[in-house]
Design a protein around this nucleic acid. Structure first.
Length: 292
DNA sequence: CTATTTGCGTTCGCCAGCGG
DNA sequence: CCGCTGGCGAACGCAAATAG
């Protein structure tokens, strides 16, 4: 989909002679960007369209315009340097082609934005994390998927390691390991193997627990964040959502109705929340102590 | 308390191998 | 031949843990 050819690399080299870029580098970058989902699907689609000016320009342009602005990544502040200035200057002439064909303000805006993004990616400026998080607030973040995958694998491994279905009354895995060592000089007594297996299993279990904890902390935190956001924008909707019995598996707890009544009462009196961590939106969606 | 070490995740480049 | 991919490891960043 984002194929990389030799000519791509030579264009790059022309644009930024200080960087040694070959097809391999570019292919790696593309792969990395796609794999780690650095741009969302919508963004990728938009970049695709801008990179390949299609003959059916009208239809695609309409689509671009219909894309909600909030789906765009926020552009980072780019530090001034000779190199960065050179990159911008190199891209300027290209704009002429695109802007000349632009018939609408939205289109012009979109083209400029694409160019800014291109500058960012060329100079390696990172797009802020917070934006990506809001963009995919409904989707499961990539890091969480990774953790869940790992958990599944680890559980499967534990299952295999603890499997006692065997012949000779001996766990199959232990037997396999014994056979493997039988061919070598290394002698490993059975208690050793058992010890190692036990350690390994304990290790895996601890890891699973830690991963689970991490996911729970993140879920809790993002639930806070969403509620806080709703609280600030639309309290009615917040109360409604709290009344709903199940929201994303977060069970409301036994005294939920009391809590809601309590909040309503306070609010109807014109009471204002003190600014605490619990009722202010965090500066970043991912709290700094949660890795992702 | 500050300084450093450690652990973990991310980013990135290189390589070998695969398939059109 | 060419582009793409999986695997691997080095370098780096960040924050928690630990030492002094």
């Amino acid at each position: 989909m984002f194929g990389v050819s030799g000519s791509d690399a030579s264009i790059f080299a022309e644009l930024e002679p200080s960087l040694s870029v070959n097809e391999q580098n570019l292919a790696d970058r593309v792969r990395y960007i796609l794999r780690s989902n650095i741009f969302g699907d919508a963004e990728l689609e938009r970049l695709r369209r801008e990179a390949v000016p299609s003959s059916k320009g009208n239809a695609t342009m309409l689509e671009t315009r219909s894309m909600p602005l909030e789906n765009r990544p926020r552009l980072p502040r780019i530090p001034f340097s000779k190199r960065n200035r050179a990159v911008v200057r190199a891209l300027n002439p290209m704009l002429v082609t695109y802007l000349g064909a632009s018939r609408e303000l939205c289109e012009t805006d979109s083209i400029l934005f694409g160019a800014a993004l291109a500058v960012c990616s060329i100079i390696g400026a990172k797009l802020p994390m917070a934006e990506r998080a809001t963009q995919q607030s409904s989707a499961i973040p990539a890091w969480r998927k990774r953790i869940e995958d790992r958990t599944t694998k680890a559980r499967a491994l534990i299952g295999r390691l603890t499997s006692v279905r065997s012949d000779n009354n001996r766990p199959r895995v232990v037997r396999t390991i014994r056979m493997a060592f039988a061919r070598t000089n290394i002698s490993l007594s059975e208690p050793d193997i058992k010890q190692k297996l036990t350690e390994r299993i304990d290790d895996l279990k601890q890891k699973i627990a830690a991963w689970g904890k991490r996911i729970r902390r993140f879920s809790e935190r993002s639930r806070w964040f969403n509620q806080n956001r709703l609280f600030q924008s639309d309290q009615k909707r917040l109360y409604k959502s709290l009344e709903r019995p199940e929201v994303c598996g977060a069970s409301p707890g036994p005294d939920q109705a009391d809590t809601i009544a309590f909040w309503r009462g306070l609010w109807s009196l014109g009471w204002e929340l003190p600014q605490t961590r619990a009722n202010t939106a965090p500066s970043r969606v991912y709290p700094p102590y949660i890795k992702h």
